[in-house]
């Protein structure tokens, strides 16, 4: 079992009032599986991703990634773990504007001090059809291209878990499907365990399993 989440709970407080975002959430994902999580906006999808990425801390529950207890880790260790094991694709790409495509992809590899990183980054970008864009700055590229750079960046460190938050949310449907095709190709090829958060049913259908997040509960559909 690659990812095993049990009894996960996250609440926010609005003054005195407790708002449950996630309740007693369970999910098991096998190695190489691609899971879609559907849900209305505000249903807690992003919170779930943040928890899984170790970017936020749960109130209760356990998260094991390859039997590593993520929930027990403190900041430092969590950061280190994340660098090695988690890749994230954001809806807004979040590329550093002053870095070129390849430099953006290189960044997580540099953080991990991976050797032959230039090769890895260049190959990844090539795989995603961006070989002609290696030395372009984000502002010189289209949205679709930017998102593909972001995908390359997320996959650069060959993470055990890839988290993607509405990767095509900012793109028109044509560009979106090009990007998502590239996305699926890449994760399938690298057999990366992936959780894709989306409200796009068609995208979800391309995944191995689908879950619906509703009122804090997650159920498979």
């Amino acid at each position: 079992m690659s990812l095993n989440v049990t009894q996960l709970e996250k609440n926010y407080f609005q003054g005195e009032k407790k708002i449950s975002i996630l309740q007693d959430l369970q999910i098991k994902v096998s190695q190489g599986e691609v899971i879609a999580i559907l849900g209305q906006s505000g249903s807690g999808k992003s919170t779930l991703l943040a928890l899984l990425a170790g970017l936020d801390i749960a109130d209760r529950g356990q998260i094991y990634l390859n039997n590593f207890p993520v929930h027990e880790q403190k900041n430092e260790a969590l950061t280190q773990w994340r660098a090695k094991n988690v890749g994230i694709v954001f809806q807004q790409y979040h590329l550093l504007p002053h870095l070129t495509a390849i430099e953006n992809v290189l960044l997580p590899l540099e953080i991990l001090e991976v050797k032959n990183r230039n090769e890895i980054a260049a190959n990844l970008l090539k795989d995603l059809g961006l070989e002609h864009r290696l030395n372009h700055l984000p502002r010189q590229m289209s949205g679709g291209e930017c998102q593909r750079v972001a995908i390359a960046r997320a996959l650069a460190t060959s993470p055990s878990l890839l988290l993607a938050d509405e990767p095509s949310g900012n793109l028109d449907s044509d560009t979106g499907s090009i990007v998502m095709n590239a996305f699926f190709n890449q994760v399938r090829k690298t057999k990366t365990t992936t959780i894709l958060v989306t409200h796009n049913k068609e995208l979800a259908d391309q995944c191995d399993r689908k879950y619906l997040l509703e009122k804090g509960f997650l159920k498979e559909i």
Partner: peptide, 14 residues
């Protein structure tokens, strides 16, 4: 400020 968050999400130490 957002860059700090981004770099952290990429696994950089504070």
């Amino acid at each position: 400020a957002w860059e700090v968050s981004l770099l952290q999400s990429l696994g950089a130490h504070k």
